[in-house]
C-alpha cells in the first residue's frame, strides 16, 4: 500500500491558485501528511505530473478550470469526460489533461484517480485569488476530507 496522494495544481496568478488553496485548506483543517498520505502543491508540472502519479493507490488532483461558468463552481471529471487530446501539444501547452492522457497511454494511471476542477475568473500574475475561489477551495477541501474519512 502506498496510500493517497493529493496534488493541488496552480500558479501564482490570481484565481489560478485554486489548487493550492485546497491544499492549504486541507492542512489548516488538520489533515496530516505523512508516509501514506502525501499532500503537495505543484506549479504547472507539465509532463512532470506523470511521474507523480505512479506508486500511489489513489490520487486526487485539483486544478483551476475555465468553462465560462460561475467562478467557484466545483466539478469532478471522470476519465470518460477527459477531452480527447492528440494534436497541438507543445511543452508550453502541456496541461493536466495532456499529462493524464499520456499517462494512460503509458499505463501509468493509479487505480483510483479523482480529478476536480474549480471554475475561476481572472488569473493575473501576482493578484490575490477572489473570495469565491477561496470559499470554493474550502468547500472542496471539506469534500475531499470527508471522502478520506477525515
Amino acid at each position: 500500500m502506498s496510500g493517497v496522494r493529493i496534488l493541488g495544481i496552480g500558479s501564482p496568478s490570481g484565481d489560478d491558485q485554486a489548487g493550492w488553496l485546497v491544499v492549504d485548506a486541507l492542512l489548516a483543517g488538520g489533515m496530516q501528511a505523512g508516509e501514506v498520505l502525501v499532500i503537495e502543491k505543484l506549479d504547472r508540472p507539465g509532463a512532470g505530473l506523470i511521474g507523480l502519479l505512479g506508486g500511489a493507490d489513489r490520487v486526487i488532483l485539483v486544478d483551476a478550470m475555465q468553462s465560462h461558468g460561475r467562478p467557484g463552481r466545483l466539478a469532478r471529471f471522470d476519465e470518460e469526460d477527459w477531452p480527447r487530446y492528440g494534436h497541438g501539444l507543445s511543452s508550453h501547452g502541456f496541461g493536466v489533461l495532456a499529462a493524464l492522457t499520456l499517462a494512460r497511454e503509458l499505463g501509468g494511471l493509479p487505480s483510483r484517480l479523482e480529478l476536480y476542477g474549480i471554475e475561476i475568473a481572472a488569473a493575473h500574475p501576482g493578484a490575490a485569488p477572489g473570495p469565491e475561489i477561496q470559499a470554493a477551495a474550502r468547500q472542496l477541501a471539506a469534500i475531499i476530507a470527508a471522502s478520506l474519512g477525515g
Binding site: 487530446y85 492528440g86 494534436h87 497541438g88 501539444l89 499520456l102 497511454e105 503509458l106
Partner: peptide, 21 residues
C-alpha cells in the same frame, strides 16, 4: 501527431524519455 500517439507504439522509449527529463 503527438507524443500521446507515439506512446502507443513506443511506450518504453517515451517512459525512458520522461525519466531522463
Amino acid at each position: 501527431s503527438s507524443v500521446i500517439e507515439l506512446a502507443r507504439i513506443a511506450p518504453e522509449e517515451v517512459r525512458r524519455g520522461l525519466r531522463i527529463q
